[in-house]
């Protein structure tokens, strides 16, 4: 250890310096000092904007114009708008289906990755890649793959005899468009599920499997009675995290469909941008964004309870 090389300058050069040093050694002073920058940042650029969002949502704020308080009129007006009701429904359909598919595929992929593999590192690296590449850019690749004239997805489907030419117009028909955005979200989010679940799998003690096998449990029974219960904690955390980030997704829909066709794929975030920035109705846009909040609060609450239970 480098302890021996520490300069033991107990004889301070000035009494002021000694005093500062003594103060900094007290936890009740150094602690608050160390967290002040983070706190200032969070108060100014997270807490304050959040309060502003609350105010905006209750006002008729418009870009470059003074705003007045109008109560919950934004929220009422939103419920009267077809676009918003469609978005509300889309958000839940999108989140539920994407998270469900990611759970199933994530567990399958993690089980496969947990086996003896030839190029373990390379395979893991390849699996994780969609998660590290900028989503906005990789989604451009998918946009091109779903292009109405040159779609490689359709070309492959037609060549394999799975689709009749010309194949679906992926981004132009409502259900196909929703399928496409869910697919890209699954593509991007799957690595997070697979790698995290894999970490959970690795930590399951081997003895449990041996004991189950000794009791005559087959592969399926071992998965159901050993693997799944032992993965419960990791799965809960992964699902909670992913729900937050899927529910608040922006990039994929913005680039693939811009919320279209006719709002069929709009999510809260993309509609909030369209109303708040493109049309300039900040108040209404903020009200839309705030619809993210209740589910978010619920999940954060669940997360905190989980973390506390873990700590105890």
């Amino acid at each position: 250890m480098a302890i021996g090389t520490l300069p033991v300058t107990a004889t301070a050069r000035g009494s002021l310096r000694t005093r500062v040093r003594e103060l900094l050694d007290r936890e009740a002073i150094l602690g608050p000092l160390f967290i002040t920058p983070a706190l200032i940042l969070i108060l100014l650029l997270v807490a304050y904007p959040f309060c502003m969002a609350l105010y905006f949502a209750l006002s008729n704020a418009f870009i470059g114009r003074p705003s007045t308080f109008i109560g919950i009129r934004n929220f009422v007006r939103l419920w009267d708008s077809d676009a918003f009701r469609q978005t509300f429904q889309n958000s839940f359909v999108f989140t539920a289906s994407a998270v469900a598919i990611k759970v199933v595929l994530g567990i399958s992929l993690a089980l496969l990755l947990n086996q003896q593999l030839w190029f373990k590192r390379v395979i893991r690296g390849a699996v994780l890649l969609p998660w590290v590449i900028p989503t906005a850019l990789s989604t451009l690749g998918w946009w091109w793959m779903f292009n109405s004239l040159y779609s490689v997805v359709n070309w492959t489907g037609i060549s394999l005899g799975l689709m009749s030419p010309p194949g679906p117009n992926w981004l132009g028909q409502r259900y196909y468009a929703m399928t496409a955005v869910v697919l890209v979200n699954v593509w991007r989010g799957l690595p997070f599920f697979a790698i995290t679940i894999l970490a959970g799998l690795v930590s399951i003690p081997q003895e449990l499997y041996e004991a189950a096998e000794a009791d005559g449990a087959g592969a399926l029974a071992r998965f159901w009675y050993v693997t799944l219960p032992m993965l419960k904690g990791v799965l809960a955390i992964v699902v909670l995290f992913s729900t937050i980030f899927t529910f608040s997704d922006f990039n994929i829909v913005y680039i693939l469909t811009h919320g279209g066709p006719i709002n069929a794929t709009h999510l809260f975030a993309t509609l909030a941008r369209q109303v708040g920035i493109d049309s300039g109705r900040i108040g209404e846009g903020a009200a839309i964004s705030l619809y993210l909040f209740p589910l978010l609060a619920l999940i954060v609450f669940a997360q905190l309870r989980y973390v506390r239970n873990q700590a105890n």
Binding site: A38, I42, L44, L45, V46, Y48, P49, F50, M52, A53, F56, I244, F245, S248, D249, F250, F268, A269, A272, R273, G276, I277, I282, G285, A286, S289, L290, L292, F293, L296, I299, V300, Q303, L304, V307
Partner: peptide, 21 residues
């Protein structure tokens, strides 16, 4: 706890008021 909660706040919730800031 507060910092953990902040970590979970998505950017798409705050971009409108932050644009004003």
């Amino acid at each position: 706890t507060g910092i953990f909660v902040t970590y979970l706040v998505p950017t798409s919730l705050l971009f409108l008021p932050l644009a004003q800031v």
